[in-house]
Design a protein around this nucleic acid. Structure first.
Lengths: 342, 342
DNA sequence: TGAAAAATCCAAAGCGCTTTCAATTTTTGT
DNA sequence: ACAAAAATTGAAAGCGCTTTGGATTTTTCA
């Protein structure tokens, strides 16, 4: 059923019906409730594309997902999107996901802009210097970066967790426990968040007068086997670390597996601190969590990102919004004082 | 830029340009390539909503994601969607995700149907008897079920893995290794796939003359802590199992953690068989995988589901499509012959 | 060469909505 | 009770595209 037919049933003009449905003040409350009830009864809903065409708003926000970066379509993403979706749907928005191959990313954004298929986008996994930011600014498309890029932090809207500080504090914690040889299993360091984490780690070491040793630092995609392989390797080196800093629960599972294989006990033999995104399927937050962690919910981040983007969309021309959350440092069972050297 | 303006640049009518762009035969190859080049040069792309409005096709397929079922927005979903998205984008489709609260699910489907905002939907996580199937049939919306429901399997399109058979074979394998006390850590059994798995497990036991013992069977959401808690409990019972069948890698991690805590060795003390969805971030497929598993890639499933749905959409009125894949039984390091009783 | 056939192009209607501008009805103030 | 003001409703244009039916040009063939 379309508007015209629906209006005929009501013996009203399409104009009035449209106004009633969209909450315009020109229509009397009596008519409005009559329309609203009839809409429910006859199950009438305005056609999306017609509405979008007329209003110029698509009521959708976009995510462009490049296939080659597993960093993006991953379990972390699914939790993030659960948060985003929740907030968006409350405002009548939905999400449009476009999967693109490597090169197609720029084209996908241009597409969305010129087709006007979304009202805004969320940028995932920003690089240290990310070309998408300039692109979207050029296209005049509202966007929000989940994370940050190095460039001009005041010129665009972003939401981020203080990754540098989180890893600095984590490192400091380990140092305060007497550890002086601390490994870092980082994410891919061309990703901005990983670069920042590394800086936090290095800063803490430097301030404690500990030399940075690339022998015990790794940077790879955050998957389980990475944690396993890196730990096996690092722990079997001549001068193995007494503590390991891990970028996510997922590689941490691999770390754990490796330690087990090596016959090493977390906390007593090797301390572990991880960054915990509070993934819904891997909750580690018991009364005494199994891992000591820098904790920050990715789902909450998703919610906040959605809200911020909507605000941008609804107030065009306003100054960029930025927000930086601190991660929580949670002491769990995986850390302890350094063992006296063997 | 809109079609009219773009046509003016070319000194052609909008009609011709539209035809050239959409590959209609009435336009000469010369004009077509001229149009195509100009489109690229001027970065012209037809407005999505206008096009949809005119054609009646949205070029999107929908996913309705209820928030309360973590079963759906989860890491498995993210891999699935990566597959779906890949196939869809090759056909010019994108995905529209709508997150809804508990009750809102039916409304969301009605919404999509009456707003014509998607051309088809994929149904996730079917229950044993799922009301969404009848609903979508009533709405006349093309859909494909990932999994099956009990009802009338010939009346709708579905794609499924032979879960019953997979778990039957897994159980048989364990039995052939001498195990007679086999625990089952299943997913939620109101989900069709889990119910089928259970039947497969029970069938194998029954055929081997082994009694079914609900003391060593669990059914919960497939998260890590579930695997841990269930294993701790089951293994500390009077008559603990010698083997455990686990519904997913994720709880299997918990199982592993529990065994470690209990000082039990996989394969030697307790055999483990899991179902492996080949999640991208938890690949367990080495030359000799760490887990023996029934393996079936969720991403491949996503791809196939997308292709099947597109076929449905493009051939309206054709008979329902169904496809059943067999899982692969892969021997890994987590199974071995039963230990002689203590 | 000229009529018929084929190829190429275009004007205009329509998809279902919003919104401007105008018309109509109701309320207000004297 | 009547003009002016306010409230309520509608007609019609427009959003940017596709597509029908028709017009124009080019090609074919006797």
């Amino acid at each position: 059923m379309n508007l015209k037919q629906f209006a005929e049933i009501l013996k009203l003009s399409p104009t009035t019906v449209s106004r009633a449905l969209n909450g315009f003040p020109e229509v009397s409350e009596k008519t409005r409730s009559r329309v609203l009830n009839a809409a429910k009864e006859h199950n009438y809903r305005p056609n999306t594309q017609a509405k979008s065409l007329a209003t110029g708003r698509s009521m959708a926000i976009g995510h462009v997902l490049p296939t080659f970066k597993k960093e993006i379509i991953n379990p972390i993403f699914s939790d993030f999107i659960a948060g985003t979706g929740e907030v968006l749907s409350k405002s009548g928005y939905h999400m449009a996901l476009t999967v693109v191959e490597d090169q197609g990313e720029e084209a996908a954004y241009r597409d969305m802009a010129s087709k006007k298929s979304v009202d805004g986008v969320i940028i995932h996994g920003p690089r240290e210097n990310d070309s998408r930011i300039a692109l979207l600014q050029e296209l005049g498309m509202p966007f929000l970066v989940h994370g940050r890029a190095q460039q001009m932090e005041t010129s665009y809207s972003w939401f981020d967790v203080n990754n540098r500080r989180a890893f600095m504090r984590a490192t400091e914690l380990l140092i305060s426990l007497g550890h002086r040889r601390i490994a870092l299993l980082n994410g891919l360091e061309y990703m901005d968040f990983a670069a920042r984490r590394r800086r936090g780690y290095e800063q803490a070491l430097t301030e404690a007068g500990i030399a940075i040793d690339s022998q015990i630092m790794r940077s790879e995609e955050m998957m389980e086997p990475y944690g396993f392989a890196a730990t096996m390797q690092i722990m079997q080196q001549p001068n193995p670390p007494t503590a390991i800093l891990v970028s996510s629960v997922i590689p941490a599972l691999g770390v754990q597996r490796a330690l087990q294989k090596l016959g090493l006990q977390p906390a007593t033999d090797v301390s572990i601190v991880i960054h915990d995104d509070q993934l819904s399927f891997l909750p580690i937050d018991a009364d005494r969590p199994m891992f000591t962690s820098t904790r920050s919910s990715i789902k909450a981040a998703g919610k906040r990102c959605a809200a911020m983007l909507l605000e941008q969309i609804n107030n065009p021309g306003q100054a960029p919004l930025t927000e930086l959350w601190e991660a929580e440092l949670v002491i769990g069972e995986s850390t302890g004082p350094v063992r006296s050297p063997l």
